[in-house]
Amino acid sequence: MREIVFDTETTGLNFSGGDRLVEIGCVELVNRVETGRVFHAYYHPERGMPAEAQAIHGLSEAFLSDKPRFADGHLTLLEFIGDAPLIAHNASFDFGFLNGELKKCGREVICLTRMIDTLQVARSRHPGAKHSLDALCSRYGIDRSHRVLHGALLDAQLLAQVYVELMGGRQIGLGLVSDVAAAAAAPTRVRAPSTIREPRLFRPSAAELVAHAAFLKTIDRPIWGAAASG
């Protein structure tokens, strides 16, 4: 099963109000294991960068000035995503910007049936707890020490680890492995041929029986003697 974990950075909170997507990072999972394939891109927002947004992700107008517009670079993104389910934290926000950009450049939007929201999953699994990405990393012991600013690819990589833990870890359902390739790659264990041994007999020798009888005679008032006389 192929899935894509992704995250976005934007100029603000409201695409319909004029904010734009400026960065996207995607991580590929197959059977909930990272394959090492990622997609990462920056986009020119065609507008200014508010100071409050730059304080979150560190992306300035100067840095983005030579980046392609989303309309000019989205085809490679769509090719990477394919038809896989898309996983994001507070996914309605990321889907809102991704679909807003796709619609703006005349492309078909991504169906929301493909959306998996890890925020909703976390609220269901851990009611009453904190559900931010940082809090979930702490809960599951995922190292986030290198996360100084928000970054789409970094956050997607962290979220991929969180998602696997939220869904029960790598041993999904503790089920049987159905992937033939995975089974073929597993190490082959060869049993050593078993040796059938004859049962060992531990019978006392005649000398041992004599010695035992002599020992019993040295015991004063044995309990078995009392039982026999009674």
Rank of each mutant, 00 (worst) to 15 (best):
M1V: 10
E3H: 05
T8A: 07
T10V: 04
G12I: 07
I24K: 01
G25Y: 03
G25Q: 04
C26T: 01
C26W: 01
L29Q: 11
L29A: 09
V30P: 03
N31T: 05
E34G: 04
G36C: 01
R37G: 01
R37I: 00
H40W: 03
A41N: 07
P45R: 06
R47A: 06
G48L: 11
G48K: 13
M49L: 13
E52Y: 13
A53E: 08
Q54N: 10
H57D: 10
H57P: 10
S60G: 12
S60F: 11
L64P: 09
L64T: 13
S65L: 11
D66Q: 15
R69Q: 06
F70A: 04
A71V: 01
A71R: 08
D72N: 03
H74P: 01
L75D: 03
T76F: 02
L77Y: 00
F80C: 00
F80S: 00
G82Q: 03
L86P: 00
I87Y: 02
A91T: 09
A91F: 08
D94E: 15
D94P: 08
F95T: 00
G96T: 03
G96E: 05
F97Y: 07
N99A: 01
G100P: 00
E101I: 01
L102V: 05
K103H: 04
V109D: 07
V109I: 13
V109Q: 11
R114G: 04
M115L: 12
D117V: 12
L119K: 12
L119D: 09
L119E: 10
R125V: 14
P127V: 15
P127D: 14
L133K: 11
L133C: 14
D134M: 08
D134W: 00
L136P: 14
S138W: 04
G141H: 06
G141D: 06
I142V: 06
R144H: 15
S145C: 04
S145H: 08
S145F: 03
R147W: 05
V148G: 11
L149I: 10
L149R: 15
H150Y: 10
G151K: 04
G151L: 05
A152G: 06
L153C: 05
L153T: 02
D155R: 09
A156T: 01
L158I: 09
A160P: 03
Q161E: 15
V162F: 06
V164T: 08
V164S: 02
E165G: 01
E165Q: 13
G168W: 00
G168H: 00
R170C: 02
Q171S: 05
I172Q: 12
L174Y: 10
L176R: 13
S178C: 11
V180M: 10
A182Q: 13
A183M: 15
A186N: 03
A186G: 02
T188M: 02
T188S: 03
R191H: 08
A192D: 13
S194R: 12
S205E: 03
A206N: 12
E208M: 11
V210G: 04
H212W: 10
A214D: 15
F215E: 12
L216M: 14
I219R: 15
R221N: 14
G225R: 14
G225V: 15
A226L: 15
A226M: 14
A226Y: 09
A227R: 14
A228P: 00
A228V: 13
G230S: 07
